[in-house]
Design a protein around this nucleic acid. Structure first.
Lengths: 230, 230
DNA sequence: GTATCCCAACTTGGATACAAGACTTGACTT
DNA sequence: AAGTCAAGTCTTGTATCCAAGTTGGGATAC
């Protein structure tokens, strides 16, 4: 989650619990876009009054996860292609910048780090551990940011990635895409190790573009979960 | 503040009014970082109960503008160099991507657009209209995004720019920097019109780096408004 | 049988009362 | 005179009540 994690740690009250719970429910798609949720329902689920739930709703609202329609109802926000394109653009820009830095600054230890992460991905593929691949994918991109000495870049990538990950649950299973994604990672790692910034960026953008196809397919198959804004 | 108190609470969503008001107060630095604000105080200022103010606080909290310390107090959040660096990185990455696209796609009309905006900036400089320069600066960067056909890129640039603008009020007056900034804009426009992406990015990064000096100076002179996190 | 209209039940928004933690200030003790 | 402890007053957190608007269903008229 975006917030200041270190500070919220000392603030474990019921509001945070409700926010966390609904955040997970929504991002995991257990609560589908368009689902109506009621303050009183959530309140009784947690055994508290409406007040903490209201606070939680305000936070989720500014996080753009729910849509509060006064006097009518509150529902899980639908996907917006406009928001997705914006998110994709940010991620592409940040990832490109991180890749350039990584290609410039990568040393032997960095190269080894990338290789070992890719090896773990191969192992996950061999073990058919599809659910664990997500974390390995995150770790790979995080390693790139660290090699490029732009650790905060991963914060942004993570934020944007999470937004889209929710969407991708609707798509095909990962197992078919995994070999392709690992191959992309190998291309990226090779370019970084060769200090070839442009090749690294090109490989990174190719990697990202896989997502576009997936999203396009989902948009067609699950049109009901999308707003018709753009 | 007192003049609009009862009027703004007319028939609009009072929560939005409170958020807007506090947002302006904070970003304009009329409310300095560290200033304590109380739910009951704001409530009586607006002539409403604590409830709408609480809702507003939740929104401002997720916007990272205030820090709510339960049972203690709520205060205007201080500047964090970590957050500023992150913001700078995002902006640099997005701006670089927009500049590359703009250099690729710029046509005659786009070049004219850039030139005319720069001409307006020269005029503002001649008229010593320092306060109006800010809007012209925004417009220039927005034009770049539009030429590059990435309109949402400006949304992000604007967001990040606003965060830092609050800080820059503490710095030196713009009048000394204006000629330099306009010169930067001319370099950027020339590179875009020449379809030289790398030169455009280089000029854009040089433009952004001016901010670093300003911020460094402010950090020293106004250390009280900064957290000591980074 | 169908269409229309009204009312009841649902939703969130706002106000108020009370609870609980933290800081301040004062008096009391040493 | 100085240190310590406790009460008071500040803060935000929570519960509950009422207001206002929308929706859907049931009853009634045709």
């Amino acid at each position: 989650m975006t917030k200041t994690a270190s500070l919220t740690a000392s603030r474990r009250n019921s509001v945070d619990d409700i926010v966390d719970h609904l955040y997970r429910e929504i991002t995991s798609l257990r609560l589908l876009p368009g689902t109506r949720i009621s303050e009183t329902d959530i309140a009784s689920q947690f055994g508290v009054s409406r007040q903490p739930v209201r606070d939680a709703f305000r936070r989720l609202e500014t996080m753009d996860l729910i849509l509060v329609r006064p006097k009518k109802a509150t529902e899980v926000k639908k996907f917006s292609m406009r928001a997705i394109e914006k998110s994709r653009f940010v991620r592409a820009a940040v990832e490109a910048a991180a890749l350039r830095k990584a290609a410039e600054l990568c040393d032997k230890a960095g190269g080894f780090e990338l290789d070992s992460r890719i090896a773990m991905q191969h192992k996950a593929l061999a073990n058919e551990d599809y659910s664990g691949f997500g974390a390995l994918d995150y770790a790979f991109h995080k390693a790139i940011c660290e090699i490029g000495q732009v650790p905060f870049a991963f914060d942004i990538i993570k934020e944007e990635k999470e937004k889209v990950d929710r969407l991708c649950i609707l798509g095909l299973s990962k197992e078919r895409r995994m070999p392709q994604l690992i191959q992309d990672h190998e291309d990226i790692a090779a370019a970084i190790k060769a200090h070839d910034a442009e090749a690294a960026v090109a490989a990174g953008m190719r990697h990202l573009s896989r997502l576009d196809e997936t999203i396009a397919a989902i948009q067609i198959n699950s049109a009901a979960y999308f707003t018709d804004d753009a």
